[in-house]
């Protein structure tokens, strides 16, 4: 599939932005700057980037507890994200959601979701809205291999199939549900095989190769926009760090396995490809990296210097309208 020079730059910028955001976040978390749990996605950058490269702000994505990469790929502001994770009032959710609930409706980001599998039907609902309104948009549900044991994925795939919705199911198979390996917990070698049960295409994709993801996503999203129904993509990928910021993955993963996956790192993989094909050069890529390094440092500074939420925020946003004010009930 053809990629414009602008899109190539966007892809590299986005993947590197996710990588740096996660690395810096882990450093900041170690310094005690984050107020809660953070699940990082470095290593998995090619997935959200290759998918969201085909989406606009009018398309919707539903995300997971490991949602920073989805947010960034959908265009969500990294300073607002960092401030949210630092528990600040300038965060995208006023400091009321944290890492596991970052959302930005102006960017079509329907929210990270702390319940495994719970976001999947929301993406299907966005696709249902799109069908009812006939506006040509699509709904994308991201989820991990661990979520494929939940009922919601099966119910959602069946609904999207029988209603022929413009939905895309993106399984980021990073091979571990928390510490449980996929071969223990999932009954098939390729989760994409399950798509056949719901009469939709199921495609296994190299989730470390953004070009492979870009091509597969382009086809799936074009299919959805053309009214031909849902597609299931399984991206084989790997998270470089633990399940959450304080998890040591070496208690359940072998170093040899990690080295094998890191040898397929999506960023050097991309750099090698574009250099070989004379599509981008080292100078340009270094300039992009420097810009992003600065952006993420600025995001940390913004988050650090931002105010904490005022205590009144405890009581706001529970309802649009409610006659018993929450503060009156205790």
């Amino acid at each position: 599939m053809e990629i414009t020079p602008e899109k190539l730059r966007w892809i590299y910028t986005t993947m590197y932005r996710i990588r740096r955001f996660e690395e810096v976040l882990l450093e900041q978390t170690a310094l005690g700057k984050s107020m809660g749990v953070a699940h990082t996605s470095d290593g998995e950058e090619a997935g959200p980037t290759g998918i969201c490269a085909h989406l606009t702000d009018d398309d919707w994505i539903a995300s997971t507890h490991r949602g920073h990469g989805h947010c960034i790929a959908k265009g969500v502001d990294t300073a607002g994200m960092m401030a949210e994770i630092f528990g600040k009032h300038t965060g995208l959710c006023k400091g009321k959601g944290g890492s596991m609930h970052i959302a930005d409706f102006t960017k079509g980001m329907l929210g990270a979701n702390g319940i495994v599998g719970a976001g999947i039907p929301l993406g299907v609902g966005a696709a249902l809205s799109a069908k009812l309104k006939g506006d040509g948009s699509v709904g994308v549900s991201f989820f991990g291999d661990g979520a494929t044991g939940e009922g919601t994925i099966h119910e959602s795939m069946n609904l999207a199939s029988v209603w022929k919705l413009p939905a895309i199911f993106v399984c980021e198979n990073n091979h571990y549900a928390e510490s449980t390996p996929v071969e223990y917990a999932v009954s098939v070698a390729d989760i994409a095989d399950r798509a056949a049960s719901y009469s939709m295409p199921g495609v296994v994709v190299d989730g470390m190769d953004v070009f492979a993801v870009y091509d597969a996503a382009g086809e799936a999203i074009a299919r959805a926009r053309a009214g031909e129904g849902p597609t299931f993509l399984e991206l084989k990928t790997y998270r470089y760090h633990g399940h959450f910021h304080a998890d040591d993955p070496h208690t359940y993963r072998l170093p040899e396995e990690e080295e094998l996956w890191k040898a397929r790192d999506p960023l050097p993989n991309f750099e090698r490809r574009v250099t070989e094909q004379d599509l981008m050069d080292d100078v340009e890529m270094e300039r992009i990296r420097n810009e992003i390094d600065q952006e993420i440092q600025d995001a940390v500074k913004f988050a650090e210097e931002s105010p904490l939420p005022p205590l009144e925020e405890l009581y706001t946003d529970v309802y649009v309208n409610y006659s018993n004010p929450p503060q009156g009930l205790r």
Binding site: P121, G123, G125, A126, L128, S129, G151, H154, E155
Partner: peptide
């Protein structure tokens, strides 16, 4: 809908969040 309460209630919530 199919007999699929978690699926269709979830889809309804997603549809509500996106303007219906």
């Amino acid at each position: 809908t199919p007999i699929s309460e978690a699926g269709f209630v979830g889809a309804a919530i997603g549809a509500a969040l996106t303007g219906t």
